[in-house]
Design a protein around this nucleic acid. Structure first.
Length: 261
DNA sequence: ACGGATGTTATTAA
DNA sequence: ATTAATAACATCCG
């Protein structure tokens, strides 16, 4: 799940559940997913402190800890999420578990082990964070059009998924944005008209904002407007045309050849 | 049972 | 110098 809207909702979930409680213990059955520090030092640094705030950058969740300068950073890979509970909901795929002094625990769950956890003084110690591109919900139209101009020889899909250009958009949401903007994922940026470029900007913001509000997996995407629910299900676009599946920029891309020119 | 999967990175090719 | 294509990571799901 974790693209920008998902991580944004993980952030809200984390802030709602896990702030201002003392961490009493940390357990892990996959210590190799904790980077930049040994598991022993990781525990030593965090135990006895409280999480005080959290924010998102791209697909990363960055957590401020009271009393120490290091930040805790979650990256979720393709299959990660968080789960907070007292007992009985333990996940088979929990890799790191934070136990709080109120008897609750926060599980960092990662099915395929492509996610990572870091504890660093400066987020720039993580090269992808250091090189992270603009936040799509913060960029102005003017800046966005300039960014396209600087990348005009690239394919639109590879550009949208490139974290060093735009932060937080991945395979699923880039497809969704292209569908809304009626643009083929195979387009080269230089072949897009000005109005298409503006549509891309507009739909990028709309899709991401709406997706955050819907907040999967609890909320679901209305199949009469969204491409997402059609991906595996019926392979029809929301207007009833046959969807096409093709590898573009290395990923399975779904698009409607009729709606998206 | 086998192909595919929401991510990132290193390597190789064009 | 750019950009794209491919494989690798590790493992679960349908």
């Amino acid at each position: 799940m974790p693209e920008l809207p998902d991580v944004e909702n993980f952030k809200k979930y984390f802030k709602k559940t896990s702030l201002h409680k003392k961490v009493e213990n940390i357990e892990s059955n996959q210590k190799s997913l904790i980077r930049k520090i040994t598991f022993n030092d990781f525990k030593k640094k965090i135990i006895g402190h409280k999480f005080e705030d959290a924010w998102r950058r791209g697909k990363f969740l960055i957590i401020e800890i009271g009393g120490i300068s290091e930040k805790l950073i979650f990256h979720f890979g393709m299959t990660g999420y968080l789960s907070y509970f007292k007992q009985g909901k333990e996940s088979h795929f929990a890799k790191v578990v934070f136990n709080f002094n109120n008897g609750y625990k926060l599980e960092w769950i990662n099915k395929r082990k492509l996610g990572k956890i870091y504890l660093v003084e400066d987020i720039r110690e993580i090269s992808l964070l250091k090189n992270m591109g603009v936040e799509p919900l913060e960029i102005s139209e003017k800046e966005f059009l300039e960014l396209l101009e600087n990348n005009k020889s690239r394919g639109i899909k590879s550009f949208f998924m490139d974290q060093t250009e735009i932060a937080g958009i991945g395979n699923i949401f880039s497809d969704e944005i292209f569908f809304r903007a009626k643009i083929s994922p195979k387009s080269k940026i230089q072949d897009l008209s000005n109005s298409k470029k503006k549509a891309l900007y507009d739909k990028m913001k709309k899709v991401l904002k709406e997706a955050i509000k819907i907040g999967p997996p609890e909320g679901s995407f209305d199949p009469s407007r969204w491409l997402i629910p059609h991906r595996q299900k019926d392979m029809k676009c929301p207007n009833g045309h046959d969807l096409k599946k093709e590898t573009i920029a290395g990923r399975s891309s779904y698009y409607c050849p009729i709606c998206q020119k």
